[in-house]
Write a protein that binds this DNA or RNA. Structure first.
Lengths: 255, 255
DNA sequence: GGTACATGTTCCATCTTACGGAACGGGAGC
DNA sequence: GCTCCCGTTCCGTAAGATGGAACATGTACC
Protein backbone atom coordinates (compact mmCIF):
# COMPACT_ATOMS: atom_id res chain seq x y z
CA UNK A 1 0.00 0.00 0.00
CA UNK A 2 2.93 2.34 0.55
CA UNK A 3 3.35 2.37 -3.23
CA UNK A 4 6.82 3.31 -4.30
CA UNK A 5 6.92 6.23 -1.91
CA UNK A 6 8.89 9.19 -3.19
CA UNK A 7 6.62 10.32 -5.97
CA UNK A 8 5.79 13.93 -6.44
CA UNK A 9 2.63 14.68 -4.58
CA UNK A 10 1.78 17.76 -6.61
CA UNK A 11 1.81 15.77 -9.81
CA UNK A 12 -0.28 12.93 -8.46
CA UNK A 13 -3.01 15.22 -7.24
CA UNK A 14 -2.95 17.26 -10.42
CA UNK A 15 -3.41 14.13 -12.49
CA UNK A 16 -6.32 13.12 -10.29
CA UNK A 17 -7.85 16.49 -11.01
CA UNK A 18 -7.24 16.04 -14.72
CA UNK A 19 -8.91 12.64 -14.72
CA UNK A 20 -11.85 14.03 -12.83
CA UNK A 21 -12.25 16.79 -15.37
CA UNK A 22 -12.24 14.19 -18.10
CA UNK A 23 -15.06 12.33 -16.39
CA UNK A 24 -17.22 15.23 -15.42
CA UNK A 25 -16.48 17.91 -17.99
CA UNK A 26 -17.59 20.56 -18.29
CA UNK A 27 -17.12 21.03 -14.58
CA UNK A 28 -16.32 23.68 -11.98
CA UNK A 29 -13.84 23.89 -9.12
CA UNK A 30 -16.17 22.96 -6.32
CA UNK A 31 -17.54 19.89 -8.03
CA UNK A 32 -14.03 18.58 -8.52
CA UNK A 33 -13.14 19.31 -4.94
CA UNK A 34 -16.19 17.40 -3.79
CA UNK A 35 -15.53 14.45 -6.08
CA UNK A 36 -11.90 14.09 -5.10
CA UNK A 37 -11.77 15.33 -1.53
CA UNK A 38 -8.99 17.75 -2.45
CA UNK A 39 -9.32 21.25 -0.93
CA UNK A 40 -10.84 23.78 -3.24
CA UNK A 41 -7.84 26.08 -3.31
CA UNK A 42 -5.55 23.22 -4.24
CA UNK A 43 -7.88 22.10 -7.02
CA UNK A 44 -7.91 25.62 -8.33
CA UNK A 45 -4.12 25.73 -8.45
CA UNK A 46 -4.07 22.42 -10.33
CA UNK A 47 -6.57 23.70 -12.85
CA UNK A 48 -4.61 26.87 -13.53
CA UNK A 49 -1.48 24.80 -13.97
CA UNK A 50 -3.18 22.44 -16.38
CA UNK A 51 -4.44 25.38 -18.36
CA UNK A 52 -0.95 26.78 -18.60
CA UNK A 53 0.21 23.39 -19.85
CA UNK A 54 -2.62 23.56 -22.39
CA UNK A 55 -4.35 20.42 -21.25
CA UNK A 56 -7.43 22.28 -20.12
CA UNK A 57 -9.28 25.40 -21.10
CA UNK A 58 -11.65 27.34 -18.91
CA UNK A 59 -14.79 28.09 -20.81
CA UNK A 60 -15.16 31.49 -19.30
CA UNK A 61 -18.79 32.26 -18.73
CA UNK A 62 -19.93 33.58 -15.37
CA UNK A 63 -19.43 30.23 -13.70
CA UNK A 64 -16.00 29.06 -14.84
CA UNK A 65 -16.23 25.62 -16.38
CA UNK A 66 -13.27 23.43 -17.32
CA UNK A 67 -12.86 21.12 -20.30
CA UNK A 68 -10.09 19.11 -21.90
CA UNK A 69 -8.21 20.45 -24.90
CA UNK A 70 -7.06 18.52 -27.91
CA UNK A 71 -3.73 17.86 -26.24
CA UNK A 72 -5.21 15.21 -24.02
CA UNK A 73 -6.44 13.45 -27.11
CA UNK A 74 -3.26 13.64 -29.10
CA UNK A 75 -1.31 12.24 -26.18
CA UNK A 76 -3.85 9.62 -25.27
CA UNK A 77 -4.18 8.29 -28.75
CA UNK A 78 -0.55 7.26 -28.77
CA UNK A 79 -1.34 4.87 -25.96
CA UNK A 80 -2.89 2.46 -28.34
CA UNK A 81 0.33 2.08 -30.25
CA UNK A 82 1.58 0.32 -27.15
CA UNK A 83 3.41 -2.69 -28.42
CA UNK A 84 2.40 -1.89 -31.97
CA UNK A 85 -0.91 -3.53 -31.21
CA UNK A 86 -2.85 -1.46 -33.63
CA UNK A 87 -0.33 -1.68 -36.45
CA UNK A 88 -0.12 -5.42 -36.03
CA UNK A 89 -3.87 -5.79 -35.95
CA UNK A 90 -5.25 -3.43 -38.56
CA UNK A 91 -4.65 -5.39 -41.75
CA UNK A 92 -6.11 -8.53 -40.28
CA UNK A 93 -9.01 -6.58 -38.83
CA UNK A 94 -9.78 -5.28 -42.26
CA UNK A 95 -9.89 -8.76 -43.70
CA UNK A 96 -12.11 -9.86 -40.86
CA UNK A 97 -14.45 -6.94 -41.45
CA UNK A 98 -14.65 -7.70 -45.14
CA UNK A 99 -15.32 -11.37 -44.42
CA UNK A 100 -18.06 -10.71 -41.89
CA UNK A 101 -19.43 -7.30 -42.91
CA UNK A 102 -19.82 -6.59 -39.23
CA UNK A 103 -18.23 -4.17 -36.79
CA UNK A 104 -14.84 -5.23 -35.46
CA UNK A 105 -13.45 -3.94 -32.18
CA UNK A 106 -9.86 -4.08 -31.05
CA UNK A 107 -9.41 -3.98 -27.29
CA UNK A 108 -6.31 -3.55 -25.21
CA UNK A 109 -6.05 -5.14 -21.78
CA UNK A 110 -3.91 -3.20 -19.37
CA UNK A 111 -4.30 -4.71 -15.95
CA UNK A 112 -5.52 -1.91 -13.77
CA UNK A 113 -7.33 -0.10 -16.51
CA UNK A 114 -9.30 -3.10 -17.59
CA UNK A 115 -10.24 -3.50 -21.21
CA UNK A 116 -10.24 -0.42 -23.38
CA UNK A 117 -11.53 -0.12 -26.92
CA UNK A 118 -8.54 0.91 -28.97
CA UNK A 119 -9.83 0.77 -32.48
CA UNK A 120 -12.90 -0.01 -34.45
CA UNK A 121 -13.73 -0.88 -38.01
CA UNK A 122 -17.36 -0.68 -38.66
CA UNK A 123 -19.85 -2.62 -40.57
CA UNK A 124 -21.14 -1.43 -43.88
CA UNK A 125 -24.58 -2.75 -43.08
CA UNK A 126 -27.29 -0.18 -42.55
CA UNK A 127 -27.87 -1.44 -39.02
CA UNK A 128 -24.67 -1.38 -37.08
CA UNK A 129 -23.50 -1.41 -33.53
CA UNK A 130 -20.52 0.18 -32.00
CA UNK A 131 -18.80 1.12 -28.85
CA UNK A 132 -16.96 4.35 -28.29
CA UNK A 133 -13.26 4.42 -28.73
CA UNK A 134 -11.66 4.59 -25.33
CA UNK A 135 -14.64 3.02 -23.63
CA UNK A 136 -13.86 0.59 -20.84
CA UNK A 137 -15.81 -2.60 -21.23
CA UNK A 138 -16.88 -4.82 -18.33
CA UNK A 139 -14.87 -8.01 -17.90
CA UNK A 140 -17.78 -10.20 -16.85
CA UNK A 141 -20.46 -9.01 -19.23
CA UNK A 142 -18.62 -8.63 -22.52
CA UNK A 143 -17.32 -11.38 -24.74
CA UNK A 144 -13.96 -9.62 -25.02
CA UNK A 145 -13.76 -9.52 -21.25
CA UNK A 146 -14.41 -13.21 -20.85
CA UNK A 147 -12.05 -14.03 -23.71
CA UNK A 148 -9.29 -12.27 -21.79
CA UNK A 149 -10.30 -13.70 -18.42
CA UNK A 150 -10.06 -17.20 -19.82
CA UNK A 151 -6.33 -16.74 -20.27
CA UNK A 152 -5.46 -14.99 -17.06
CA UNK A 153 -4.10 -16.70 -13.93
CA UNK A 154 -6.71 -17.63 -11.35
CA UNK A 155 -5.73 -15.01 -8.81
CA UNK A 156 -6.05 -12.23 -11.33
CA UNK A 157 -9.45 -13.53 -12.37
CA UNK A 158 -10.43 -13.55 -8.72
CA UNK A 159 -9.30 -9.99 -8.30
CA UNK A 160 -11.12 -8.75 -11.39
CA UNK A 161 -14.36 -10.47 -10.44
CA UNK A 162 -14.29 -9.49 -6.79
CA UNK A 163 -16.93 -7.03 -5.78
CA UNK A 164 -20.35 -6.52 -7.16
CA UNK A 165 -20.86 -7.61 -10.77
CA UNK A 166 -22.94 -4.96 -12.43
CA UNK A 167 -26.07 -6.26 -14.09
CA UNK A 168 -26.75 -4.68 -17.46
CA UNK A 169 -29.59 -6.94 -18.57
CA UNK A 170 -31.26 -10.18 -17.61
CA UNK A 171 -28.62 -12.00 -19.65
CA UNK A 172 -25.73 -10.58 -17.66
CA UNK A 173 -24.03 -13.34 -15.66
CA UNK A 174 -25.32 -12.91 -12.13
CA UNK A 175 -22.38 -14.14 -10.12
CA UNK A 176 -18.70 -14.97 -10.27
CA UNK A 177 -19.49 -18.67 -10.28
CA UNK A 178 -21.27 -18.63 -13.61
CA UNK A 179 -18.60 -16.48 -15.25
CA UNK A 180 -15.85 -18.85 -14.15
CA UNK A 181 -17.80 -21.83 -15.46
CA UNK A 182 -18.14 -20.13 -18.81
CA UNK A 183 -14.38 -19.64 -19.02
CA UNK A 184 -13.91 -23.40 -19.45
CA UNK A 185 -16.05 -23.31 -22.53
CA UNK A 186 -14.15 -20.27 -23.80
CA UNK A 187 -10.84 -22.08 -23.46
CA UNK A 188 -12.20 -25.07 -25.34
CA UNK A 189 -13.68 -23.22 -28.28
CA UNK A 190 -11.13 -20.41 -28.36
CA UNK A 191 -13.73 -17.66 -28.27
CA UNK A 192 -16.34 -16.17 -25.99
CA UNK A 193 -19.87 -15.24 -26.92
CA UNK A 194 -22.23 -12.60 -25.70
CA UNK A 195 -25.95 -12.64 -26.29
CA UNK A 196 -27.25 -9.29 -25.09
CA UNK A 197 -25.40 -9.68 -21.80
CA UNK A 198 -24.07 -6.17 -21.88
CA UNK A 199 -25.65 -3.83 -24.36
CA UNK A 200 -29.26 -4.34 -25.34
CA UNK A 201 -29.82 -5.81 -28.76
CA UNK A 202 -26.18 -6.58 -29.35
CA UNK A 203 -24.61 -9.99 -29.75
CA UNK A 204 -20.89 -10.54 -30.13
CA UNK A 205 -18.07 -13.02 -30.24
CA UNK A 206 -14.59 -12.30 -28.92
CA UNK A 207 -11.21 -13.95 -29.24
CA UNK A 208 -8.17 -13.23 -27.08
CA UNK A 209 -4.95 -11.76 -28.44
CA UNK A 210 -2.12 -13.67 -26.84
CA UNK A 211 1.55 -12.82 -26.69
CA UNK A 212 4.23 -15.43 -27.12
CA UNK A 213 3.91 -16.49 -23.49
CA UNK A 214 0.17 -16.96 -23.77
CA UNK A 215 -0.66 -13.85 -21.78
CA UNK A 216 -3.62 -11.89 -23.13
CA UNK A 217 -2.77 -8.45 -24.49
CA UNK A 218 -6.31 -7.70 -25.50
CA UNK A 219 -9.12 -9.04 -27.58
CA UNK A 220 -10.73 -8.91 -30.95
CA UNK A 221 -14.50 -8.77 -31.06
CA UNK A 222 -17.15 -8.94 -33.74
CA UNK A 223 -20.32 -7.12 -32.72
CA UNK A 224 -23.62 -7.85 -34.38
CA UNK A 225 -27.13 -6.50 -34.02
CA UNK A 226 -29.21 -9.24 -32.50
CA UNK A 227 -31.34 -9.75 -35.61
CA UNK A 228 -28.26 -11.02 -37.42
CA UNK A 229 -27.09 -13.10 -34.45
CA UNK A 230 -27.92 -16.68 -33.57
CA UNK A 231 -26.01 -19.75 -32.47
CA UNK A 232 -24.97 -20.77 -35.97
CA UNK A 233 -23.72 -17.27 -36.75
CA UNK A 234 -21.80 -17.20 -33.49
CA UNK A 235 -19.98 -20.39 -34.44
CA UNK A 236 -19.15 -19.03 -37.86
CA UNK A 237 -17.97 -15.66 -36.53
CA UNK A 238 -16.14 -17.34 -33.68
CA UNK A 239 -14.03 -19.39 -36.04
CA UNK A 240 -13.16 -16.31 -38.08
CA UNK A 241 -12.31 -14.27 -35.01
CA UNK A 242 -10.10 -16.96 -33.55
CA UNK A 243 -8.24 -17.29 -36.80
CA UNK A 244 -7.75 -13.53 -37.09
CA UNK A 245 -6.63 -13.24 -33.47
CA UNK A 246 -4.08 -15.98 -34.02
CA UNK A 247 -2.65 -14.18 -37.05
CA UNK A 248 -2.36 -10.96 -35.10
CA UNK A 249 -0.67 -12.81 -32.28
CA UNK A 250 1.85 -14.15 -34.76
CA UNK A 251 2.49 -10.64 -36.06
CA UNK A 252 3.15 -9.42 -32.55
CA UNK A 253 5.52 -12.24 -31.84
CA UNK A 254 7.65 -11.60 -34.87
CA UNK A 255 7.91 -7.89 -34.09
CA UNK B 1 6.43 35.34 -21.98
CA UNK B 2 6.13 35.36 -18.20
CA UNK B 3 3.21 32.98 -18.69
CA UNK B 4 0.62 33.32 -15.98
CA UNK B 5 3.25 32.89 -13.33
CA UNK B 6 2.31 30.87 -10.30
CA UNK B 7 1.85 27.46 -11.87
CA UNK B 8 3.34 24.37 -10.35
CA UNK B 9 6.69 23.77 -11.92
CA UNK B 10 6.79 20.09 -11.03
CA UNK B 11 3.56 19.47 -12.85
CA UNK B 12 4.55 21.40 -15.94
CA UNK B 13 7.80 19.50 -16.36
CA UNK B 14 6.13 16.18 -15.66
CA UNK B 15 3.55 16.84 -18.32
CA UNK B 16 6.33 17.72 -20.73
CA UNK B 17 7.90 14.38 -19.94
CA UNK B 18 4.58 12.64 -20.48
CA UNK B 19 4.10 14.26 -23.84
CA UNK B 20 7.59 13.32 -24.86
CA UNK B 21 6.97 9.72 -23.93
CA UNK B 22 3.84 9.78 -26.05
CA UNK B 23 5.84 10.98 -29.03
CA UNK B 24 8.84 8.76 -28.69
CA UNK B 25 7.58 5.67 -26.95
CA UNK B 26 8.95 3.23 -26.23
CA UNK B 27 11.69 5.44 -24.86
CA UNK B 28 14.31 5.56 -22.12
CA UNK B 29 15.30 8.17 -19.56
CA UNK B 30 18.27 9.58 -21.40
CA UNK B 31 16.45 10.07 -24.67
CA UNK B 32 13.76 12.04 -22.89
CA UNK B 33 16.32 14.13 -21.07
CA UNK B 34 18.00 14.92 -24.36
CA UNK B 35 14.76 15.76 -26.12
CA UNK B 36 13.50 18.06 -23.39
CA UNK B 37 16.66 19.46 -21.84
CA UNK B 38 15.49 18.37 -18.41
CA UNK B 39 18.18 16.80 -16.19
CA UNK B 40 18.19 13.03 -16.24
CA UNK B 41 17.50 12.58 -12.55
CA UNK B 42 14.52 14.89 -12.76
CA UNK B 43 13.15 13.04 -15.75
CA UNK B 44 13.55 9.82 -13.85
CA UNK B 45 11.57 11.14 -10.94
CA UNK B 46 8.83 12.28 -13.28
CA UNK B 47 8.66 8.86 -14.87
CA UNK B 48 8.39 7.09 -11.54
CA UNK B 49 5.66 9.48 -10.52
CA UNK B 50 3.75 8.91 -13.73
CA UNK B 51 4.04 5.19 -13.24
CA UNK B 52 2.64 5.49 -9.75
CA UNK B 53 -0.26 7.47 -11.21
CA UNK B 54 -0.66 4.62 -13.70
CA UNK B 55 -0.15 6.76 -16.77
CA UNK B 56 3.03 4.97 -17.74
CA UNK B 57 4.46 1.52 -17.39
CA UNK B 58 8.09 0.62 -17.58
CA UNK B 59 8.52 -2.31 -19.89
CA UNK B 60 11.20 -3.81 -17.77
CA UNK B 61 13.80 -5.43 -19.96
CA UNK B 62 17.46 -4.69 -19.38
CA UNK B 63 17.16 -1.18 -20.75
CA UNK B 64 14.07 0.26 -19.07
CA UNK B 65 11.67 1.54 -21.68
CA UNK B 66 8.61 3.61 -20.96
CA UNK B 67 5.22 3.49 -22.64
CA UNK B 68 1.78 4.95 -22.06
CA UNK B 69 -0.91 2.91 -20.37
CA UNK B 70 -4.55 2.74 -21.27
CA UNK B 71 -5.28 5.55 -18.84
CA UNK B 72 -3.88 8.14 -21.18
CA UNK B 73 -6.25 6.88 -23.81
CA UNK B 74 -9.34 6.75 -21.68
CA UNK B 75 -8.73 10.31 -20.53
CA UNK B 76 -7.82 11.61 -23.96
CA UNK B 77 -10.84 10.15 -25.62
CA UNK B 78 -13.08 12.37 -23.55
CA UNK B 79 -11.46 15.37 -25.17
CA UNK B 80 -13.16 14.68 -28.44
CA UNK B 81 -16.54 14.76 -26.81
CA UNK B 82 -15.85 18.45 -26.42
CA UNK B 83 -18.95 19.96 -27.90
CA UNK B 84 -20.21 16.53 -28.79
CA UNK B 85 -18.32 16.74 -32.05
CA UNK B 86 -18.06 13.04 -32.57
CA UNK B 87 -21.61 12.24 -31.58
CA UNK B 88 -22.90 14.96 -33.85
CA UNK B 89 -20.76 13.81 -36.73
CA UNK B 90 -20.88 10.03 -36.74
CA UNK B 91 -24.26 9.36 -38.34
CA UNK B 92 -23.56 11.78 -41.15
CA UNK B 93 -20.06 10.37 -41.57
CA UNK B 94 -21.56 6.95 -42.02
CA UNK B 95 -23.83 8.18 -44.73
CA UNK B 96 -20.93 9.91 -46.42
CA UNK B 97 -18.85 6.75 -46.26
CA UNK B 98 -21.65 4.70 -47.75
CA UNK B 99 -22.13 7.24 -50.51
CA UNK B 100 -18.47 7.46 -51.43
CA UNK B 101 -17.08 4.08 -50.36
CA UNK B 102 -13.97 5.93 -49.33
CA UNK B 103 -12.26 6.63 -46.04
CA UNK B 104 -13.73 9.49 -44.03
CA UNK B 105 -11.74 11.42 -41.44
CA UNK B 106 -13.11 13.66 -38.73
CA UNK B 107 -10.68 16.28 -37.50
CA UNK B 108 -10.87 18.60 -34.55
CA UNK B 109 -9.20 21.99 -34.63
CA UNK B 110 -8.00 23.22 -31.28
CA UNK B 111 -5.91 26.29 -31.82
CA UNK B 112 -2.55 25.52 -30.33
CA UNK B 113 -2.76 21.83 -31.00
CA UNK B 114 -3.52 22.25 -34.66
CA UNK B 115 -5.68 19.71 -36.39
CA UNK B 116 -6.07 16.31 -34.82
CA UNK B 117 -7.72 13.25 -36.34
CA UNK B 118 -10.54 12.40 -33.99
CA UNK B 119 -12.29 9.60 -35.79
CA UNK B 120 -12.17 7.63 -38.95
CA UNK B 121 -14.55 5.47 -40.93
CA UNK B 122 -12.77 3.50 -43.53
CA UNK B 123 -13.39 2.50 -47.02
CA UNK B 124 -14.52 -1.00 -47.89
CA UNK B 125 -12.42 -0.94 -51.04
CA UNK B 126 -9.46 -3.28 -51.13
CA UNK B 127 -7.09 -0.35 -51.59
CA UNK B 128 -7.58 2.17 -48.86
CA UNK B 129 -5.78 4.98 -47.23
CA UNK B 130 -5.91 6.21 -43.72
CA UNK B 131 -4.32 8.36 -41.14
CA UNK B 132 -3.78 7.35 -37.57
CA UNK B 133 -6.28 8.46 -35.00
CA UNK B 134 -4.73 11.23 -32.98
CA UNK B 135 -2.35 12.22 -35.73
CA UNK B 136 -1.73 15.91 -36.13
CA UNK B 137 -2.07 16.95 -39.70
CA UNK B 138 -0.21 19.88 -41.28
CA UNK B 139 -2.30 22.97 -41.91
CA UNK B 140 -0.67 23.92 -45.19
CA UNK B 141 -0.31 20.52 -46.82
CA UNK B 142 -3.60 18.81 -46.04
CA UNK B 143 -6.99 19.61 -47.44
CA UNK B 144 -8.50 19.61 -43.96
CA UNK B 145 -5.91 22.12 -42.90
CA UNK B 146 -6.65 24.49 -45.73
CA UNK B 147 -10.40 24.02 -45.27
CA UNK B 148 -9.98 25.27 -41.71
CA UNK B 149 -7.53 28.02 -42.62
CA UNK B 150 -10.00 29.42 -45.10
CA UNK B 151 -12.36 30.28 -42.25
CA UNK B 152 -9.91 31.64 -39.72
CA UNK B 153 -9.16 35.34 -39.20
CA UNK B 154 -6.12 36.60 -41.07
CA UNK B 155 -3.89 37.02 -38.06
CA UNK B 156 -4.44 33.43 -36.99
CA UNK B 157 -3.66 32.25 -40.50
CA UNK B 158 -0.47 34.29 -40.37
CA UNK B 159 0.51 32.76 -37.09
CA UNK B 160 -0.16 29.21 -38.25
CA UNK B 161 1.78 29.66 -41.48
CA UNK B 162 4.70 31.48 -39.93
CA UNK B 163 7.93 29.59 -39.93
CA UNK B 164 9.18 26.98 -42.31
CA UNK B 165 6.48 25.10 -44.23
CA UNK B 166 7.52 21.50 -44.30
CA UNK B 167 7.68 20.01 -47.79
CA UNK B 168 6.32 16.49 -47.97
CA UNK B 169 6.35 16.08 -51.73
CA UNK B 170 6.78 18.15 -54.85
CA UNK B 171 3.06 18.96 -54.69
CA UNK B 172 3.31 20.53 -51.25
CA UNK B 173 2.67 24.28 -51.43
CA UNK B 174 6.10 25.82 -51.23
CA UNK B 175 5.31 29.10 -49.51
CA UNK B 176 2.72 30.96 -47.53
CA UNK B 177 1.79 33.01 -50.56
CA UNK B 178 0.49 30.06 -52.57
CA UNK B 179 -1.42 28.69 -49.61
CA UNK B 180 -3.16 31.97 -49.00
CA UNK B 181 -4.08 32.24 -52.67
CA UNK B 182 -5.62 28.81 -52.54
CA UNK B 183 -7.80 29.83 -49.60
CA UNK B 184 -9.82 32.12 -51.87
CA UNK B 185 -10.71 29.17 -54.04
CA UNK B 186 -11.58 27.14 -50.95
CA UNK B 187 -13.99 29.78 -49.73
CA UNK B 188 -15.66 29.91 -53.13
CA UNK B 189 -16.17 26.20 -53.60
CA UNK B 190 -16.66 25.34 -49.95
CA UNK B 191 -14.02 22.63 -49.92
CA UNK B 192 -10.28 22.20 -50.26
CA UNK B 193 -8.50 19.61 -52.34
CA UNK B 194 -5.22 17.84 -51.98
CA UNK B 195 -3.45 15.99 -54.76
CA UNK B 196 -0.54 14.16 -53.15
CA UNK B 197 0.53 17.30 -51.35
CA UNK B 198 1.03 15.56 -48.06
CA UNK B 199 1.08 11.81 -48.18
CA UNK B 200 2.35 10.07 -51.29
CA UNK B 201 -0.30 8.49 -53.47
CA UNK B 202 -3.18 10.03 -51.55
CA UNK B 203 -5.68 12.54 -52.82
CA UNK B 204 -8.38 14.09 -50.66
CA UNK B 205 -11.07 16.69 -50.33
CA UNK B 206 -11.93 18.45 -47.09
CA UNK B 207 -14.78 20.63 -45.89
CA UNK B 208 -14.79 22.78 -42.76
CA UNK B 209 -17.11 22.20 -39.81
CA UNK B 210 -18.36 25.59 -38.72
CA UNK B 211 -20.10 26.58 -35.53
CA UNK B 212 -22.98 29.03 -35.47
CA UNK B 213 -20.60 31.98 -35.56
CA UNK B 214 -18.78 30.64 -38.59
CA UNK B 215 -15.68 29.65 -36.66
CA UNK B 216 -14.15 26.34 -37.75
CA UNK B 217 -14.31 23.57 -35.15
CA UNK B 218 -12.65 21.06 -37.39
CA UNK B 219 -12.99 19.44 -40.75
CA UNK B 220 -14.37 16.48 -42.58
CA UNK B 221 -12.15 14.84 -45.17
CA UNK B 222 -12.55 12.13 -47.77
CA UNK B 223 -9.26 10.40 -48.54
CA UNK B 224 -8.75 8.49 -51.76
CA UNK B 225 -5.92 6.49 -53.24
CA UNK B 226 -4.65 8.45 -56.21
CA UNK B 227 -5.79 5.88 -58.75
CA UNK B 228 -9.38 6.69 -57.83
CA UNK B 229 -8.75 10.44 -57.74
CA UNK B 230 -9.01 12.99 -60.51
CA UNK B 231 -10.52 16.39 -60.96
CA UNK B 232 -14.02 15.10 -61.72
CA UNK B 233 -13.98 12.86 -58.68
CA UNK B 234 -12.76 15.74 -56.53
CA UNK B 235 -15.74 17.83 -57.59
CA UNK B 236 -18.14 15.00 -56.86
CA UNK B 237 -16.60 14.21 -53.47
CA UNK B 238 -16.30 17.89 -52.65
CA UNK B 239 -20.01 18.44 -53.07
CA UNK B 240 -20.80 15.46 -50.85
CA UNK B 241 -18.33 16.54 -48.19
CA UNK B 242 -19.64 20.09 -48.10
CA UNK B 243 -23.18 18.84 -47.74
CA UNK B 244 -22.22 16.46 -44.94
CA UNK B 245 -20.22 19.12 -43.14
CA UNK B 246 -23.17 21.48 -43.28
CA UNK B 247 -25.46 18.87 -41.77
CA UNK B 248 -23.03 18.25 -38.95
CA UNK B 249 -22.72 21.95 -38.34
CA UNK B 250 -26.49 22.15 -38.05
CA UNK B 251 -26.45 19.29 -35.53
CA UNK B 252 -23.90 21.15 -33.45
CA UNK B 253 -25.88 24.33 -33.53
CA UNK B 254 -29.04 22.70 -32.27
CA UNK B 255 -27.21 20.98 -29.41
C1' DG C 1 41.48 -7.81 -22.00
C1' DG C 2 40.90 -2.86 -21.81
C1' DT C 3 39.31 1.67 -22.58
C1' DA C 4 35.54 4.73 -23.53
C1' DC C 5 31.10 5.99 -23.57
C1' DA C 6 26.47 4.66 -23.43
C1' DT C 7 22.66 3.46 -20.48
C1' DG C 8 19.40 3.49 -15.93
C1' DT C 9 19.48 4.38 -10.97
C1' DT C 10 20.50 6.31 -6.24
C1' DC C 11 21.84 9.79 -2.87
C1' DC C 12 21.51 14.16 -0.51
C1' DA C 13 21.97 19.10 0.98
C1' DT C 14 19.84 23.29 -0.56
C1' DC C 15 16.11 26.29 -0.94
C1' DT C 16 12.25 26.65 -3.94
C1' DT C 17 7.33 26.13 -3.72
C1' DA C 18 3.17 23.40 -2.86
C1' DC C 19 -0.15 23.28 0.81
C1' DG C 20 -4.80 24.39 2.66
C1' DG C 21 -7.37 27.12 6.03
C1' DA C 22 -9.40 31.48 6.07
C1' DA C 23 -11.17 35.44 4.04
C1' DC C 24 -13.16 37.94 -0.01
C1' DG C 25 -16.47 39.31 -3.88
C1' DG C 26 -20.77 38.08 -6.12
C1' DG C 27 -24.70 35.89 -7.82
C1' DA C 28 -29.16 33.03 -6.73
C1' DG C 29 -33.03 32.07 -4.08
C1' DC C 30 -36.16 31.41 -0.55
C1' DG D 1 -32.34 41.46 4.42
C1' DC D 2 -30.29 36.78 5.14
C1' DT D 3 -28.13 32.51 3.72
C1' DC D 4 -25.88 29.33 0.73
C1' DC D 5 -22.78 28.22 -2.85
C1' DC D 6 -19.92 29.71 -6.28
C1' DG D 7 -14.92 30.97 -8.02
C1' DT D 8 -10.89 33.36 -6.51
C1' DT D 9 -6.99 35.33 -3.65
C1' DC D 10 -3.79 35.55 0.22
C1' DC D 11 0.01 33.93 3.05
C1' DG D 12 3.10 31.53 6.75
C1' DT D 13 4.70 27.25 7.32
C1' DA D 14 6.74 23.11 6.30
C1' DA D 15 7.02 19.75 3.02
C1' DG D 16 9.37 18.22 -0.87
C1' DA D 17 11.19 19.19 -5.70
C1' DT D 18 15.62 20.05 -7.58
C1' DG D 19 19.84 18.52 -10.17
C1' DG D 20 24.80 17.65 -9.77
C1' DA D 21 27.65 13.92 -8.72
C1' DA D 22 28.56 9.20 -7.98
C1' DC D 23 27.28 4.38 -8.91
C1' DA D 24 26.15 0.15 -11.41
C1' DT D 25 25.77 -2.08 -15.59
C1' DG D 26 26.06 -2.92 -20.76
C1' DT D 27 27.76 -2.20 -25.33
C1' DA D 28 31.23 -0.88 -28.92
C1' DC D 29 35.50 -0.48 -30.58
C1' DC D 30 40.42 -2.12 -31.02
Amino acid sequence: MTSSGHAMRAVITTLRVLETVAELQPVGVSAIARATGIPKSSVHRCLVTLREADWLTSSSTDRTQWVLTGRALSVGIHASVEGGLREAALPTMHRLRDATHETIHLLSYSGDQGLVVVDRLDSDEPVRTWVHLGARVPMHASCSGRAVLAHLPDDEVDRLLSGELERFSENTPADKQSVVEDLVRVRESGYATNDRAWRPGVGAVGAPLLDKDGRPLGALAVSVPIQRYDEARAVELGALAVDAARRIGANLRSA
